[in-house]
Design a binder for these strands. Structure first.
Length: 680
DNA sequence: GTCATGTATCAA
DNA sequence: TGATACATGACC
């Protein structure tokens, strides 16, 4: 392997001092004018935007003197790489290069705007290492596409933040006032906050942000979706000027998004709220990272390398010495793990206060009774539920959570209960409206003359009912009360505080000022029926979030919540005791025994059949690694690799090495997912 | 990913 | 011997 064969033809470089001597010495006929490099720091270390794992490292380029002032750290540049022009970012400028071979000059500075701050470049490296991915993949998530017109406009600096945090609502929480004081004094507390039922959580989050901002530092809050962002936006608006914070969400147009990004990147604004992509916002002097309801799966980025916003924020808290606040009504096992490991402290309401705020009961339809006749209105709405709704409607709106969107989302044979499948594509049949014929939910085929292939029966039944059917039933049961519906495709942000029945699917529950008069959770067995590892944790999170919307009753009466389900299920008992933390604790113990996250670190590797097994065999996996599989999937096969949590970094490193070797050998790309939200 | 280079292979 | 195919490694 000889380094740098005789070179000719291409542009010549010359460092400032020796420019003249070199040019005189060697002047082959066709050489162009030598590029004169910048006086100071003539080397730019550039991260090139290539999808190849083995090229995920900086390359040195010469900085022509005319780019001396524009090729700053963080600038977008174009460079010649292996004969083609590629995009890249300047990571830093340097006086010398350790590269022995030829050094090419930068082709062009796309823009002098330093969009990749050094601390974000370091974060991007952290995230790539954590998720066994490339920096170029993470950069696509961290730096929005350039919008040249927007870049020409200067960002107007927000006025200085003079607002002071008000400890009022936090004072109900032991340690709550202390938390705000610490934030205001420039401290870095790390807290898992169990937001109480009926809490206007956005207001408390806003106070925490104001506290951190009043110490002169920046703050960054991630929320699951647009609706939650809007709630915090509303709470912040009455505390900060609209020039003092920005909202970063995907639904704003490219120009608006880029303008918001630049305002943050330029330090004009230091408070950022937004959805998962905001976790990378280059907030100056970061003092606080916060995340609301970290168990929501919207925080899992669907693009490689699939980072989770909570992990990105925790990496930032660590690297940038910022306070961390994980708030939720429920408790993710990951948040609980942070408490158990001592990384964070808990802030929660005392038991007595919880009992004052909410009373959860279970309407005793056991699983067996449900199975016997799930479709009958009487079994779906037991007597107790009926009473709670009727009593609640006297004072205000009643929230009814029903797990499925639609009307009757799955049909089965009336006599033998075989699920009804589409005669064309074998997709599930469903009904979209009261008198509509059964229709395939996949291909849309209308199966009006359906006949059961098992028993020849012609009757259909609906064991799973959707929100529209539920709304219809309740409308009949309470004819004088308006019924509102909020589900996936038509989500209501807020409803008025007047008697009404509000039917909603999980996650689509509208907010109501002062809280609902009662909250009803229907068909709890359905959320638990999912085969997913996290089914119970996720079900409890969704119930807890809905239940937390119950407002206090008249006088000293706590908010009323009633769930229809099997009272023997421990997860429902956890709901009754309002003990998501205890449930998460038990989950962790069980998962420890089963070698599942968060006690273990898990990665999935998938690709063409045969390739994955071979690739894994050639990797030096850390001590104690277990390889499980293969499971056949559409694109080939998938293996699961798991290691003790302390070997998590080693696992990521090993998988990264594997990817680098494969890309260098031009072997087919394998999909690697570290900490997948769900396996299977 | 592209590009340059090296080695194998085959027809003339 | 030269033309062509494919594998390999560098890429700043």
């Amino acid at each position: 392997m000889t380094a740098g064969p005789a070179e000719e033809g291409d542009e010549q470089l010359s460092l400032p001092g020796i420019a003249r001597a070199k040019a005189r010495q060697a002047t082959p006929p066709k050489v162009r004018k030598p590029t004169v490099l910048a006086e100071a720091d003539p080397i730019a270390r550039v991260l090139v935007d290539l999808p190849l794992a083995h090229l995920d490292r900086p390359f040195d380029y010469g900085v022509p003197e005319q780019m001396a002032a524009t090729a700053v750290a963080g600038a977008r540049v174009k460079v010649r790489f292996a004969g083609q022009d590629v995009d890249g970012f300047v990571l830093e400028r340097a006086a010398t290069s350790a590269h022995a071979g030829r050094i090419q000059p930068l082709r062009r500075v796309v823009s002098p705007e330093p969009v990749l701050a050094p601390v974000i470049a370091a974060l991007v490296a952290d995230v790539a290492a954590r998720y066994a991915g490339t920096r170029s993949d993470v950069l696509r998530l961290a730096v929005p596409a350039r919008h040249a017109t927007t870049e020409k406009v200067a960002s107007t600096p927000g006025s200085a933040i003079t607002a002071r945090a008000d400890n009022g609502l936090w004072a109900a929480y032991p340690g709550g006032a202390g938390l705000l004081d610490a934030l205001g004094a420039g401290g870095n507390p790390r807290v898992v906050w169990a937001a109480g039922p009926g809490e206007d959580w956005a207001v408390l989050l806003a106070e925490a942000v104001v506290a951190a901002a009043s110490s002169g530092r920046g703050a960054l809050v991630c929320l699951p979706d647009r609706r939650d962002v809007d709630r915090l936006d509303g709470a912040l608006r009455s505390r900060l000027g609209t020039d003092q914070y920005v909202v970063l969400t995907a639904d704003a147009g490219p120009a608006q998004r880029y303008a918001a990004f630049l305002a943050v990147s330029r330090g004009a604004v230091r408070v950022v709220i937004g959805t998962r992509a905001a976790a990378f916002a280059p907030v100056h002097d970061l003092g606080l990272v916060a995340i609301w309801d970290d168990g929501d799966d919207l925080y899992a980025e669907p693009r490689a390398p699939y980072p989770h916003a909570r992990e990105v924020l925790l990496l930032r808290a660590q690297r940038e010495d910022a306070a961390a606040l994980l708030g939720a009504h429920g408790r993710s096992v990951e948040a609980e793990y942070l408490l158990r490991s001592g990384w964070a402290a808990e802030v929660a309401l005392p038991r007595e206060e919880l009992r004052r705020r909410v009373a959860v009961s279970i309407a005793g339809a056991s699983d067996r009774e449900q199975e016997r006749d799930p479709a009958a209105g009487a079994a779906r709405l037991p007597r107790g539920v009926f009473d709670v709704i009727r009593d609640g409607l006297v004072t205000g709106p009643v929230l009814v959570q029903t797990p499925r969107a639609g009307y009757a989302t799955r049909l089965s044979c009336d006599s033998c209960r075989t699920p009804a499948a589409c005669p064309v594509c074998h997709g599930p049949l469903g009904i979209t409206a009261a008198h509509a014929p059964p229709t395939c939910t996949w291909c849309g085929t209308v199966a009006a003359s359906w006949r059961c292939p098992e028993c020849g029966g012609r009757g259909l039944r609906a064991p799973v009912l959707g929100d529209r059917r539920t709304a219809e039933e309740l409308g009949r049961a309470f004819p004088s009360v308006p019924v509102q519906s909020s589900a996936s495709d038509r989500v209501l942000a807020e409803v008025a505080r007047r008697p009404a029945i509000v039917v909603a699917t999980p996650g689509a529950e509208p907010w109501v000022a002062g809280g609902y008069a009662a909250v009803v959770l229907l068909d709890t067995w359905l959320l638990l029926a999912r085969s997913d590892l996290r089914a119970e944790e996720e079900a409890l999170r969704r119930w807890t979030n809905a239940a937390a919307l119950a407002g206090p009753g008249p006088g000293p009466i706590p908010g009323r919540v009633i769930a229809v389900g099997d009272p023997a299920r421990p997860v429902l008992q956890a709901l009754v005791r309002w003990d998501a933390a205890g449930f998460a604790q038990r989950e962790i113990v069980e998962r420890q025994e089963a070698h599942l996250p968060p006690a273990s670190r898990v990665a999935t590797v998938s690709g063409r059949a045969g390739a994955v097994e071979q690739a894994l065999a050639g990797v030096g996996l850390p001590e104690g690694a277990e390889v499980l599989g293969p499971v056949l999937i559409e694109e080939g096969e998938r293996f699961v690799v798991r290691v003790p949590r302390m070997s998590g970094a080693a696992l990521s490193a090993a998988l990264l090495t594997m990817q680098a070797q494969r890309s260098a050998r031009k072997e087919a790309h394998l999909r690697v997912e570290v900490d997948p939200v769900s396996i299977g």
